[in-house]
């Protein structure tokens, strides 16, 4: 099993796409992936510090050639300003999960310990369930989800990865990252 995970990781790329903040741009990007047969693992979109630019973080599976095609095809979309692949870059990657987990009285202590270890927070509590907020990389989230499954997860949502390069380098808004 660990081998398959490694294989997947080798093929997984986190790319950041800067796009004009126009209606329909998400459809263009999503449509491109669908049409060319590229699979999106996760997708997070929001506006940037510049209200005219949105930033998408897309996690895709594929080898080097597939990624090169994705990058080039994305760059062909008129509303795409820049595409950056963070695979080879030192980058911070974060995913946020909200997990509604069964929390009967006799389990609450254990769950709170787990949450503490993973530096999560309990943000809602009722007589039968907690909502836990936890942030981190994909692996960390996978782990806590795995641990919480023992108590019964009622509902879960994840934002998908967002990423940013370490250091002072930025995904500049001008100029295109081609070739």
């Amino acid at each position: 099993m660990s081998n398959t995970i490694v294989a997947q990781l080798q093929q997984q790329h986190t790319i950041t796409v800067l796009v004009d903040n126009h209606p329909g741009v998400l459809a263009r990007v999503a449509g491109l992936f669908a049409r060319r047969g590229y699979n999106i693992e996760s997708l997070a979109v929001s506006v940037t510090d510049n209200p005219e630019i949105s930033r998408m973080t897309i996690v895709v599976n594929g080898d080097h050639r597939v990624l090169e095609q994705i990058t080039k095809q994305l760059n062909k979309l008129v509303e795409v300003t820049k595409v950056v692949d963070y695979t080879e870059t030192a980058a911070v990657e974060r995913d946020l999960a909200l997990i509604k987990v069964n929390a009967e009285a006799h389990h609450r202590g254990e769950i709170m310990q787990i949450v503490e270890i993973f530096r999560g927070r309990i943000i809602d509590m009722s007589d039968k369930a907690f909502i836990i907020e936890v942030t981190g990389g994909t692996e960390k989230l996978d782990k806590i989800i795995h641990l919480l499954e023992a108590y019964g997860i009622r509902e879960m949502v994840r934002t998908g990865i967002i990423a940013m390069a370490r250091g002072s380098k930025t995904a500049s808004r001008t100029g295109r990252d081609t070739e």
Binding site: R65, E68, Q69, K72, Q73, N75, K76, T178, E179
Partner: peptide
Amino acid sequence: IDPAEIGKVIQ
């Protein structure tokens, strides 16, 4: 003229 054609089918 189209960079995306380079390597699309044949490297």
